[in-house]
Design a binder for these strands. Structure first.
Lengths: 382, 382
DNA sequence: CTGTTAGCGCTTTCAC
DNA sequence: GTGAAAGCGCTAACAG
């Protein structure tokens, strides 16, 4: 029932052809033509974003038609499509993703949970992931768990509430209980772990050959003639820590070097603790000749502590890290480190999600390769 | 019209009291009791997330009541509330933010657009902003414009489509046209610029006292006895660049040092170009005695270039940067720099958004203070 | 205290 | 080709 904008009558109104894409009406009482645009409410509120209904009303067509035209569906009159497109452009129409998501029950967002992003590693992963995801029409929602299990659970909940289509996560060092991830699996939400994976969960994973990389690193120290080699490990709760530590132990054993428990330290990966343990090792009655650190931030703290004590690197102490943080090339001497393709790890995790979504793929593990970069901290020849 | 699950009849059904929070019905034909849960469809699809309707059906109450209970509204029977809460917990119910956003026309998300996040600065801002926002119940959606105007426009569109409640942005160096931001203003979407602001837009801003900080930096170089001082500036399109550059010029003039145009270079802030211009300056027939760089990444490239040429810092060349990137304290010699409260900048931008949203506040500019940190790159006394 | 109804903006049958 | 109607999950009047 169309109401005449002038006399407010309904019964006297009849259709009167289409002019410039708009349905016109005629009121027999007023003897005047009008379009639906004329019946529109006076001046929409400024907060109101333009919708397909606005376009439809203005053009005197149905919102279904507008919707179809906007999505470039085939069964649409070219003229109509053009009119819709033009008006949409003119009105700066932006589709409402919330509404879209509600009906399609997908949000075009993927969530990412990382323990921190102060250091080089995670931001770089994010860059890689975001690139791939954005190209595929997805947006990334990033959360920091701050190494807190509680926060991680809260993050998962928040991302679930936002109905993300998938999750890329690197767990905290405190994550013992993984029920919050199991819940995702049950709901069929693609889950990709990277770097810090959950061994007890059979999901997609992206890792590097941590064991091999670490083994090569320690091997390199041994080759350089160092025998008393310490290891500052990450928390044993993380698989990466355990793998790198095991590689350390195995490399020593293979070289026939007896393991000295005094030289193995596990810690929580905070910068303050790194400083403390670095000093502790250097102050040992019989200090190590070399230190293999679980990651570059740790190794850098070791170098700084050694320099503060006037210890000469690499003559009195060799240092090796893991990841090839850009600082490794800047600090003096340069830090020998096990480079991992961080950016590629982000891209791979994103791609794994993309492959999974829709077609339920079986859990896949992608292993990327590392490479030992030898710099001055472990070799005089550089 | 309630249908009996047994005989499929409608007319023979009557209400029969409430048992354990659930509305019970009685079918006169079958002479049997049942609840609405019994009439539920067989096994919901696994992809189906639990909704308030599921809870309502299970409990035999209306979804409005569930909605009210969940939100802890007052006019709710304690027993009902408890039953709802318990079932929600048990079913791992997560409210659908898309639906919520649709009806409230707010998404509880705020967008952030930064030119990059490879260096220290922007990730640190993000950390600060996210902390404040998360505490207020908002999620952050981060986009990188990669210094591309096109990408920035696309980012704005994408965030608008996601119906973010506000935007925190640092523009690209190529942003000349600001119509995409004007459109936001028109729609009444809170917009906060930080660090790289848009002078032509009258919005909220968070900046540091760039001019004062830069002036102090150059003044410091002059005080240390350096006279031939170069400046590697950022692109003139950015206000920060222009301010720091003007401070450089003014400090020279105030000290009566004639300005040598050969010693002023503007560049696009990419690492490669930084390297190139650093070498260029060092290779001048009459090279500068000191270089004030627009930011720390630039200054670090200068130090690396100088070291590669065997130039002694600070004896033959002094270097000063801007921002106090952590690398500044690690590189040798330590980089003198103008520290700015980066983390605080993120927090402030977020707070400004929070203050604005709802109550339309007049455009505010918050100016944070900088502090000169003197290290070895500009002073022998350190 | 609780249920009913309408509607947020969009897609998707099902008709014509 | 196009329109009408239903529905995604939720909140918000408006009745009782």
């Amino acid at each position: 029932m169309i109401r005449c904008p002038k006399c407010q009558q309904v019964d006297a109104v009849t259709k009167a052809g289409i002019v410039r894409g708009k349905q016109r009406y005629f009121c027999k009482t007023c003897a005047a033509h009008f379009t639906l645009a004329d019946t529109a409410p006076p001046a929409a509120r400024s907060r109101h974003q333009v919708t397909i209904v606005d376009i439809a009303r203005e053009l005197g067509i149905s919102k279904s038609t507008v919707s179809r035209a906007l999505r470039g569906q085939s069964d649409i009159h070219p003229g109509t499509r053009e009119a819709v497109m033009e008006l949409a452009q003119q009105l700066d129409y932006q589709p409402n993703l919330l509404a879209y998501g509600l009906v399609k029950s997908q949000s075009n967002m993927v969530g990412m949970i990382v323990p921190e992003f102060r250091h080089y590693f995670f931001p770089e992963v994010i860059i890689g992931a975001q690139e791939v995801l954005q190209a595929a029409g997805y947006n990334l929602m990033i959360c920091q768990s701050n190494e807190s299990y509680q926060t991680e659970v809260a993050n998962v909940k928040a991302l679930m509430s936002s109905r993300v289509d998938g999750l890329l996560v690197s767990i905290t060092s405190q994550t013992n209980n993984v029920e919050h991830f199991r819940a995702l699996e049950k709901k069929g939400i693609p889950l990709v772990f990277f770097n810090r994976i959950c061994p007890e969960l059979d999901t997609h994973r992206v890792v590097v050959d941590d064991y091999a990389g670490a083994f090569r690193a320690v091997q390199h120290l041994i080759d350089q003639g160092y025998r008393r080699i310490a290891h500052i490990a990450g928390p044993p709760s993380l698989l990466v820590s355990r793998l790198r530590q095991q590689a350390y132990l195995d490399a020593l054993e293979q070289a026939g070097i007896p393991f000295d428990p005094e030289l193995l330290i596990s810690y929580d990966l905070t910068d303050e603790k790194a400083r403390i343990y670095a000093r502790y090792l250097l102050d040992l009655p019989q200090p190590p000749e070399a230190i293999f650190a679980v990651n570059d931030p740790t190794a850098i703290q070791v170098i700084l502590a050694a320099k503060a004590r006037g210890i000469c690197i690499p003559d009195e102490l060799a240092v090796v890290g893991f990841s090839d943080d850009p600082i490794s090339a800047i600090i003096e001497p340069g830090l020998t480190t096990v480079a991992q393709p961080v950016y590629e790890m982000g891209r791979t995790a994103a791609r794994l999600f993309l492959e999974t979504v829709g077609t339920q793929t079986a859990p896949t593990t992608r292993v990327l390769q590392t490479e030992l970069i030898v710099r001055g901290s472990s070799s005089r020849k550089i």
